[in-house]
């Protein structure tokens, strides 16, 4: 099978790989580059577990071909903590007990991050809308919604 080169920035570092043409970004990240934080819950675009941020936009990495990401800037959940300090969303998910099996968590955090990046002070409806592409089978969603709202409140810019 023809190999094609891909090159992008992942969580601040340059990555370059030769991959089989047609490989999804999800499989390239997990199997080639070794970032297993995006999860494959369906490989068909219906669960959100594979969510990543590409050039500031939320994307389902199972529905993207890696070769279309050349030159892109990609963020995954494994790259959110800086210098061992958790991102406020990670902190909030921890503190409010918003993870159970944790399989949906990286995708949820990605979706929430894009929301907070664009809408630092979201309403509950904004959060619901932002998470509506992500499936969680354990929590019943309410704890996750609360975690995202708590993260937003923790942002000093949102101090009333």
């Amino acid at each position: 099978m023809a190999k094609v080169p891909v090159q992008f920035t992942l969580n601040g570092s340059e990555k370059a790989e030769f991959i089989d043409s047609g490989t999804t970004l999800l499989n390239a990240l997990r199997d080639k580059i070794g970032d297993t934080s995006p999860k494959g819950g369906c490989h068909q675009g219906t669960c959100g577990a594979c969510s990543v941020i590409i050039d500031g936009e939320l994307r389902l990495s199972c529905l993207m071909l890696a070769e279309t990401c050349n030159g892109a800037t990609i963020t995954t959940t494994s790259g959110l903590a800086v210098g061992g300090v958790l991102h406020p969303l990670q902190r909030a998910f921890l503190d409010t007990f918003a993870t159970q099996c944790g399989f949906c968590t990286p995708g949820m955090i990605m979706a929430a991050k894009v929301l907070l990046d664009h809408t630092p002070n979201p309403s509950r409806e904004d959060v619901v809308e932002a998470l509506s592409g992500n499936i969680c089978r354990c929590t019943g969603y309410e704890p996750i919604i609360r975690a995202v709202l708590a993260a937003a409140r923790a942002n000093p810019q949102n101090a009333a």
């Binding site: 934080s37 995954t76 959940t77 944790g102 990286p106």
Partner: peptide, 9 residues
């Protein structure tokens, strides 16, 4: 186990 979950580890 939660720190592992939120960091994708």
């Amino acid at each position: 186990d939660s720190p592992g979950h939120v960091t994708g580890r």
